[in-house]
């Protein structure tokens, strides 16, 4: 019962999101080409939940995050955050909304201003939103930096004087000082060593509880997503191919692409024989996606229908698992 109530009122609800980039030679002359970075994506993020978005590079998972944050304003679609459509917000309203939605970057060194001390960067969000007096701001920043595990001696350092893990902690502190409700983490640990990754993930878990966060977690590391998230969205070339709860998708993947991804997760067990499904070929260019199902050139199941009609994302089973595959849905495949 509480489950259905929750799903009635998600914190973030994205529907039919599209993001198209015009590229080409630019200027007034020259051909314009369009890239559908995100092509009709819909999903919900439940309050207090952790949604994982996975997929290969350039599948559009970061573009989804950047659309939600209005870094790349979406071409069309709806993004409802707590009852408000973010797409319709004007610039000023967006600036206030930034307090609610924060972003953790993949590259923490790039995300930090090289000419500002750690402390100054963590205080800055408070200055931008004029929260508290100068003393309170400093005090709050010190507290938060300690909460993310940075000792007082590193507060006056510059980003280049810190290690990768420490920098990511600074980025986290800067994102959390505004007490946001939604935290979007774009590959937050992929630039870090494995041992540091575990520390940062552990920290994220602690912060999730203490700050009552809802998290969107973008990653290509499936074991990490399995560990950290409770729902998952699998993207391929700008579209969702499968989504559902972590247990459902990992124990019973339906889409051939998801199956290939999950079969490729290393199993930490000596002598374990893997039956990894090795995908043939490269992901196709987003400039020129294949007709029909985008996955068909690499799919072992492909049929005539797959080459001409893109499959809709339809429910499989009772637990809200969605799959976009003609074969799974048992459609009439050959004429």
């Amino acid at each position: 019962m509480s489950d259905t109530q929750q799903s009635m009122n998600p914190l973030l609800s994205v529907s039919n999101l599209r993001l198209t980039f015009n590229t080409g030679y630019g200027g007034w002359l020259g051909n314009r080409r369009h890239v559908h970075a995100v092509d009709g994506v819909s999903f919900d993020v439940q309050r207090g939940g952790v949604l994982g978005i996975v997929g290969e590079s350039s599948c559009g998972k970061s573009s989804v995050a950047k659309s939600i944050l209005n870094i790349h304003p979406p071409t069309s679609g709806q993004i409802i955050f707590d009852g408000e459509d973010l797409v319709r917000l004007n610039t000023r309203a967006w600036r206030d909304m930034r307090r609610e939605i924060q972003y953790v970057f993949q590259d923490p060194l790039g995300a930090l201003d090289p000419r500002m001390t750690v402390l100054a960067q963590v205080i800055e969000p408070l200055i931008i939103h004029s929260i508290g007096s100068s003393d309170e701001q400093t005090k709050q920043a010190h507290e938060l930096l300690e909460a993310v595990g940075l000792l007082a001696e590193s507060h006056s350092k510059y980003p280049h004087e810190l290690s990768g893990g420490q920098r990511q902690r600074v980025v986290l502190a800067r994102a959390l000082i505004l007490k946001p409700r939604l935290l979007i983490c774009d590959e937050p640990v992929s630039a870090l060593d494995v041992s540091i990754q575990a520390q940062v993930i552990q920290l994220l878990e602690e912060l999730k509880t203490s700050f009552d966060l809802t998290i969107m977690f973008i990653s290509h590391d499936l074991s990490l997503v399995r560990y950290f998230c409770d729902t998952i969205v699998v993207m391929y070339l700008g579209r969702i191919v499968e989504s559902g709860s972590i247990e459902e998708v990992f124990t019973n993947p339906q889409h051939p692409y998801t199956q290939a991804l999950i079969s490729s997760i290393p199993v930490p067990e000596p002598g374990h024989k893997r039956d990894a499904i090795i995908l043939q070929g490269e992901p196709p260019s987003p400039f020129n996606p294949p007709t029909g199902c985008h996955f068909h050139p690499r799919c072992g199941w492909q049929k005539t229908l797959c080459r001409s009609v893109y499959p809709d994302l339809d429910a499989v089973g009772q637990d809200g698992q969605l799959v976009a595959c003609h074969v799974v849905h048992g459609r009439k495949l050959d004429p």
């Binding site: 600036r95 930034r98 307090r99 924060q102 790039g110």
Partner: peptide, 13 residues
Amino acid sequence: TGYAVAVRVLGAS
């Protein structure tokens, strides 16, 4: 890519 986007996401003008 860098810090400018980060600051913009924080709500800076």
